[in-house]
Simulated assay, not measured.
Amino acid sequence: MSDTPFNAPVRSRRLWDISPPVHRAAPVFPGDTPYQQQWAATLGPGCPVNVATLTLSPHVGAHADAPLHYSPEGAAVGALDLAPYLGPCRVIHAIDCGPLVQPEHLRHAMQSLPPRVLVRTYARMPQDRFDTALPAFAPRTLEGLADLGVLLVGIDSASVDPADSKTLDSHQVLRRRGLRVLENLLLDAVPEGDYELIALPLKLTEADASPVRAVLREL
């Protein structure tokens, strides 16, 4: 039993919100469904509440892809174990690394790697437009992370594959190696280092992805 007095001050651990804002102008993959909102009910005489109706792709904002997104036999996002989305993680900077994050871009931060790795590629993540030249992961980078026991990878771009890819080679590495993934993270203000990740997907039982409110908490 702790001998700390009940009235002793408790220092709260700092949080970094790594979720970009979601609104009508939030960029989406070309052809995907943008965020839209209507009011099903509004405050007024005879109505005590506001109630919104939302239409959106589950890939809007920070989100978790499920295996169903890239495999017809893959699990829907609501069936996934939550453990990979919660726990120690490392933020690694590979800013302006070029079109693909290669193993050498991460090598400086690979010692004693925790099971979750988030990679920052942008000096400033574009939040007002879709980046058709988005940075992605080289498949061999994901293979190497999986070999080291990583369970989840994340990136601050809209996809782990180049925007024009038709083969989705890096997504297929995720499938084969059982890796979980977060995309569209906002890492602009996050120093390189170790944190606790909290980024739980919704229990959407038939969906290929889910929005997340992703945060990092200091250890």
Results as ranks from 00 to 15, higher is better:
38 Q>G: 15
67 P>H: 03
88 P>I: 10
165 S>G: 08
102 Q>Y: 08
152 L>W: 00
57 S>Q: 06
35 Y>S: 06
124 R>L: 10
76 A>H: 08
156 D>V: 02
155 I>N: 04
189 A>M: 13
142 L>G: 02
124 R>A: 09
45 P>D: 14
82 L>F: 09
25 A>D: 15
101 V>I: 03
83 A>M: 12
121 T>Q: 02
117 V>I: 13
95 I>A: 08
52 A>E: 14
61 G>M: 00
196 E>H: 14
59 H>G: 07
86 L>S: 12
133 A>M: 11
172 Q>R: 08
89 C>Y: 05
96 D>I: 11
177 R>N: 10
99 P>M: 01
165 S>A: 11
120 R>L: 01
95 I>T: 02
161 D>H: 02
172 Q>M: 09
149 G>K: 14
161 D>E: 04
76 A>C: 02
174 L>H: 00
136 A>T: 01
119 V>H: 05
85 Y>K: 10
113 L>F: 14
209 A>C: 06
187 L>P: 00
42 T>H: 15
183 E>S: 11
107 R>H: 13
1 M>R: 15
102 Q>P: 02
193 G>S: 13
115 P>D: 14
20 P>V: 00
85 Y>M: 00
67 P>D: 06
69 H>T: 07
89 C>E: 08
68 L>Y: 01
46 G>V: 07
112 S>R: 15
180 R>T: 07
72 P>Y: 02
180 R>A: 10
219 L>Q: 10
201 P>L: 03
12 S>Q: 15
210 S>A: 04
119 V>Q: 00
64 A>C: 06
127 Q>T: 03
71 S>P: 06
87 G>K: 07
120 R>S: 02
146 A>N: 09
24 R>A: 15
7 N>E: 15
75 A>D: 07
140 R>D: 10
209 A>T: 03
115 P>H: 14
160 V>P: 01
183 E>M: 12
134 L>K: 00
35 Y>D: 06
178 G>Q: 11
28 V>P: 05
105 H>S: 05
86 L>I: 13
138 A>E: 02
19 S>H: 04
70 Y>N: 09
82 L>C: 11
194 D>M: 10
150 V>T: 01
177 R>Q: 13
97 C>D: 05
143 E>D: 13
56 L>W: 04
176 R>E: 12
33 T>N: 10
175 R>C: 11
165 S>W: 10
196 E>S: 13
131 D>A: 05
84 P>R: 01
102 Q>F: 07
71 S>T: 09
183 E>Y: 00
